[in-house]
Amino acid sequence: MELAASVLLDTTLITLTLALAAFGLAIIYGLIGVINMGHGAMLTLGAYFTWAGLQLEIPFVLSVILSGFIVGFIGLLFEHWIIKRFYNSPYETLLLTWAFFLVTTELIKIVFGSDFRTVVNPYPGSIDLGFYKIPTYRTLICVFTAFVILSTGFVFFRTSTGIKIRAMIQNREMASLLGLNISLTYKIIFGFGCFMAGLAGGLVAPMLSVSPYMGDMYLVRSFFVVIVGGIGQILSGTIIGSFVIGGLETIVALFSDQVIAQVAVFFFAIVILRIRPQGIFSEK
């Protein structure tokens, strides 16, 4: 029983952390159809900016928020100068965002060096549940993730802008007739996705080693979260996808080893791509 409860708690932590890392990708992919291969580099950038903020003695929370905004701004520039010309050619956006990854990773190495950087856990300690201890900081992150996803959901389903954006996914012309500035909306969505990536990078930084390649760890997993969850299902899809990808890895690892667990997850993702390209639980 306690084992089951602890597995459940672990799975929740994994699911929500993965959801946080994947959310920026899900937004950009789901709403404007761009596969952002630069997502990993944006996470890394967020972590480095947070580290830099702490070096300047800016408080942690403020550093993370600033990192989000800086990465979002970089994303906006990238969109404005390059990506916006290629919205109709998915391959080009894929290649260009990959190039963004290459160039950014190199720039990070040049600007910040390649030593491991440390972002100190700002909320150390753990919450003792008697049979199990859960880390305070992880819990806070998970609460925050749930909050972000729910509030995005609110904007999406309960405000007029949200309704227009949903209309835009269905039919661009109709949305522009409704008075939506399509190119501006795309820009804002892209920027918001990058902002979320930067924010997520800053938030996971205290749990990981900050190094130029840290984003890679989450990049591929994030893709599969989005695929398994279903494109366009940015809210429930991200949670479900994270649950399946993260949970599957945890559960398979219980019975075999970690490598097999990772292989199983990737294999599963390929199968999902084929049999339910719209995501496992979505109807369409």
């Binding site: 491991f116 201890k133 990981l208």
Partner: peptide, 30 residues
């Protein structure tokens, strides 16, 4: 670094002695 940070965050650092054969100056700085 990933493992150790999470070990500490889980409040397990003081429950066990950890002996590492990998963490020279570079990793320990990290």
């Amino acid at each position: 670094v990933n493992f150790r940070k999470q070990l500490v965050a889980a409040g397990m650092k003081n429950d066990f002695t950890l002996w590492t054969v990998d963490d020279e100056e570079v990793v320990t700085s990290g």
